Amino acid sequence: MITTNRLKNLDLGTLRSFATIAEAGSMTRAAARLFMTQSAISMQIKRLEASLGLVLFERTAKGMVTTSTGEQLLGYAIRLLDLNDEAVGRLTSQDYEGQVRLGIPSDVIYPYMPDILKQFNRDYPRVQIKLSCANSKELKQQLKQGSLDVILATEKNPDGGGEVIGTQRLIWTGADGGNAWKQQPLPLGMSKSCAFWPSAIKALDSAGLEWIDQVTTEDFTAAEAMTAADLCVCVELGCALITGRAPIDHGGLLPALPDYFLVVYCADDTPSVTVSELMGYLQRGFA
């Protein structure tokens, strides 16, 4: 006689928590993004592991990392959640139309903005996002002139009128396994218009460390390429690293850097529904 195991159903809410932890690398950050308590999200994962009889995460010095079986489940979870969200978004969202002009500094587009924009487009398919990239100072000027509806700025001392959605420590970055940071004078690869340039120079001068400027263009991608090639070092937000660059483990040989705030500014005191919604997506995405 052939018998079959009782089929188990995966809870979508639990899968969303699981996928968010895998992306954020931390239960604390995942709970903040999902507006849940850490204890609640922890209980969800314990029940999921017990139900499947599998260990889905391992805790490392870099945070929570999926196991090999957890990585397999993650692929299924993303597909299931995408299908669920697409169905719910198409069937229940109001038929908003129009355009939202969004400004973002180029150095914080990755890794979060692609997912934020993808989710917003899924939920508001008839709202067009027009994206502009510039440094925070220029974006605030464009906002004041009426060229943009909402911006995300990186600031050490935020002005009034903005909403702080996160705080990130500046870090020294270089090529993965590189040695440029050991050179004297220190080769620095940053554009002069970068919001972090004054903090980097002040930290180096205060520490009495000599430095040279290796990048003369205002294009941030040039600094990225030079840094990834181990020709110089850079200063970036810890959340904005992409392939080719890594935090420098300098053991205190380079000076400490300050925190910077992620601040959302809106052109209108009473923004439209779509602008307000996009601001919410930014807040959750960078939590």
Rank of each mutant, 00 (worst) to 15 (best):
S132F: 09
E97M: 07
G177E: 00
L73H: 07
K118M: 04
E277H: 07
I109Q: 08
M43G: 14
V264A: 02
Q183I: 15
K192V: 12
K156Q: 07
L231G: 12
K46T: 08
A203D: 05
T14I: 09
I78D: 15
G89F: 00
L237C: 15
A24S: 10
M36G: 06
M36T: 08
D268W: 01
L139Y: 08
D85E: 06
Q94P: 09
I212K: 06
D115H: 10
L56N: 02
P247V: 03
T4H: 14
I78L: 12
I2F: 08
V55W: 00
A175H: 08
Y96V: 03
A87Q: 12
T243Q: 13
G89W: 00
N84L: 02
D159Y: 14
C194K: 14
L80P: 15
D259N: 06
V215S: 10
D159M: 09
T217S: 13
E86L: 15
D95W: 00
W172V: 05
L209H: 03
W172M: 03
F57Y: 12
F286S: 04
C239L: 11
L139Q: 10
F196A: 07
V108T: 04
R59G: 12
F261Q: 09
C194M: 09
L209S: 01
T221N: 12
Q168E: 13
L81Y: 01
G251N: 10
D95Y: 01
P258V: 10
D115Q: 10
D205I: 06
Q141V: 11
P198V: 04
R90Y: 01
L170A: 09
D268G: 05
G25S: 01
N121K: 12
L15Y: 02
D123L: 02
Q94T: 08
R101C: 14
E155N: 03
F35Y: 14
V88K: 09
D176W: 05
R47Q: 06
N135A: 10
L152A: 06
G103Y: 06
A40P: 04
I21A: 04
D176H: 11
D259A: 14
P247G: 08
Y260C: 09
P247N: 05
L12W: 01
A200D: 01
K118H: 12
L148T: 03
P125I: 08
I242T: 13
T92V: 07
E58W: 02
V55E: 05
N84T: 11
L170K: 02
